[in-house]
Amino acid sequence: MQLILRQPAARDAGDGSTGVVVAASPDTFGREQWQWDVRICESEAGFDVAVAHNVESIEVVEESIDVSASFEATREVAELWLAVVVKKPVIHGQFRLEAGDVAVWEGDDPVRIRVQAVEDDARLQLVRIRRRDGKAARWVP
């Protein structure tokens, strides 16, 4: 499953902290335990990204990616990936993602991720989320 979250859809964290939550799990009205959330905050460089997560159950790897022409990678099905566009627009499939937009990928479709730059100096912050118990990380735990 793929989620494209446009920056205007971001919401205040509601806890007095800086930045806005762009993606979180659980992101439902269910009874699930909080697992992780990703916030962005506008900065001179574009957007700063902050990830908070439940360290007992979730492992997070962050990577800053310079999309000088294109970026390609294959996601493991058990991983959930978030790509925050930090600077300059990029193209992913049929979507043009502007700075502050977020793409979330989970499950078995899509696993091959290809992002192309529209302009020079495009930058992504890739957040890879994995469950410590070996089960697949999902948008709904």
Binding site: M1, L3, L5, R6, P8, D109
Partner: peptide, 10 residues
């Protein structure tokens, strides 16, 4: 059997 792309824009 096919997944979805959900887009939230405002």
């Amino acid at each position: 059997k096919h997944g979805i792309t959900v887009e939230v824009d405002g």
